[in-house]
């Protein structure tokens, strides 16, 4: 049954990792704004659609701009 020391140590280690990660993310301000990311997330999709249209109509002219967007997916 001494294996229980090992199991306990492992479970605690996992718990503590998550605990530290949580503290870290709060400290970095990741929970300060819980609204905007939910809206921003929806834009990314739409933007790709718009880019696809653009490359269709006006491929040559707008290509560069499209590239900028694609290389910066978090915008």
């Amino acid at each position: 049954m001494t294996i229980i020391y090992m199991l306990l140590a492992l479970s605690l280690l996992v718990a503590i990792i998550f605990f530290v990660l949580f503290i870290f993310s709060v400290r970095k301000g990741q929970y300060d704004d819980t609204y905007t990311p939910s809206v921003r997330m929806l834009f990314d999709d739409e933007l790709v659609k718009e880019n696809a249209e653009l490359t269709g109509d006006n491929a040559g002219k707008k290509l560069n701009k499209t590239k900028v967007n694609l290389t910066n997916p978090d915008k």
Binding site: D32, D33, T34, Y35, T36, V39, R40, L42, F43, K65, V68, N72, K75
Partner: peptide, 27 residues
């Protein structure tokens, strides 16, 4: 509104000097 978030986060298209912009909507 959400349009505001979108346009302000795409400021780099209006001005080349902007590298990135991030909106905090509640604030």
């Amino acid at each position: 509104c959400s349009s505001c978030i979108w346009i302000l986060e795409n400021l780099n298209k209006l001005s080349p000097s902007v590298t990135s912009s991030q909106v905090n909507f509640p604030e």
